[in-house]
Write a protein that binds this DNA or RNA. Structure first.
Lengths: 241, 241
DNA sequence: TAGTGGTCTAGACCACTCC
DNA sequence: GAGTGGTCTAGACCACTAG
């Protein structure tokens, strides 16, 4: 019976303004945003209110606080953040860095599934790419990745081969597309001939199928991918609360 | 060169005291804790400091705030929370409640793996139970669950059959064991004869193997389980930030 | 109307980083 | 020492719940 509960506290409005500024690129990934005191003046609120807005953005991992230094726009373009969304860990605890190796890259029209996942019209232009992830020079993940061409114009094999780091670091550095969050659906499948060969397992071996949609500011989907994970020497790790 | 950074803010000390009180059962799951004002008096700090401690406990899901009513100890013993740790969702979005059906329950000595995962000495007494999870009366998950007998004395098939709800709600209601968080490792495996029959799939079908350790207050491991998930009609859903 | 959590402010001071 | 985020306080007021 009651109307919509339209009440929105000040700090959430400040938060929305900050997200808008981030989305518009007022501050680039890795750069510092103005100090809390400055922002308080800019928005005509107390520092405590700015602080609460930033608290939430830090919890969302859009910003990173560093005591004594400032507050920074989070970035994928830093070795420690390259594979922020990758949940695969080796069975023996040793930490080896992953390496992304591009295989193919072509243009295509969106079929029903990519169109739906990317919120695009059927037939919209896409860039599709295939790559593998390696640990210790061994292929462990094979991905097929679908991107709306509109936002990734110019992406090709040369660019992929020239780039050090993860795809998300490339997306950020070259196309200004910053992924904020993602959602994965994991299933068990059998390796077909191609997948088996790619990951160095027998045909018919069990693999994880991992489908992921990644979102940029404003919950806009910007990437859809399907991966095959070999879980012989690794596991998909998940924390539950 | 610098010594250990032992600085701990007041609100974290308050938080630790609150966790201790929760662990000792001063307030039971589902019940309200004292108001922020009362706690401020009790600990001789300002309400804002208590508030920040509770903020973190709410983020950890140990407490739940309800505006106008109070702050409550979180509980698994509520239909909406029965399967808080279950990440399985149906392929078609419809929400059907899960149902836990016990199969077997027996006593055993801890082998190397349960002992390691539960931080118990080799040979420590365990209770082991097998059960299935059903959606729409169809078996989708088969679990084998290992519990330290010390904390679950008296658990048997009769008790399992008599209980409505999830295992965690039973653990909480009957044994005062409240799971706070858990960690899962997911792999792809092939269904053996037994697993295939249990889940109604062909032998050799791909299944998810999900190993989980659950922790109570103080990060004390209290349960280890291994599950087989059929992902024919469901997917393991995960949010990444 | 009373009690609870939620917001907002202003100010003092602390911890950390860098020059 | 200057500048940043981090803590703590005290007080006023708002939103929500329940009797």
């Amino acid at each position: 019976m009651t109307g919509s509960p339209t009440f929105s506290p000040l700090y959430r409005q400040i938060k929305a303004l900050l997200v808008q500024a981030l989305d518009e690129g007022e501050w680039r990934p890795g750069m510092a945003i103005p100090s809390e005191a400055e922002l308080a003046v800019r928005f005509s609120v107390s520092q405590g209110t700015v602080r609460k807005a930033i608290d939430e953005l830090a919890a969302d991992k859009m910003l990173v606080r560093r005591q004594g230094k400032g507050t920074f726009v989070s970035t994928h373009n830093d070795p420690r953040e390259y594979f922020r969304f990758l949940r695969l860990v080796p069975n023996n605890g040793e930490v080896v860095p992953a390496r992304s190796v591009p295989l193919e890259c072509w243009r295509a029209k969106a079929g029903p599934e990519p169109a739906r996942m990317l919120d695009l019209p059927h037939g919209a232009p896409l860039i599709v790419l295939r790559r593998v992830l390696q640990f210790n020079d061994r292929n462990v993940v094979g991905d097929e990745i679908y991107l709306p061409e509109e936002h990734f114009r110019g992406l090709d094999m040369d660019m992929l081969k020239a780039h050090e780091g993860s795809l998300y670091s490339l997306f950020e550095a070259r196309f200004g597309v910053h992924m904020i969050r993602a959602q994965e659906r994991v299933r068990a499948v059998l390796a077909d001939r191609e997948g088996a060969q790619l990951l160095g397992v027998d045909e018919g071996s069990p693999l994880l199928s991992v489908e992921r949609v990644s979102y940029t500011y404003g919950d806009r989907p910007m990437e859809w991918r399907r991966g095959l994970y070999s879980t012989v020497d690794h596991a998909y790790l998940n924390e539950l609360n």
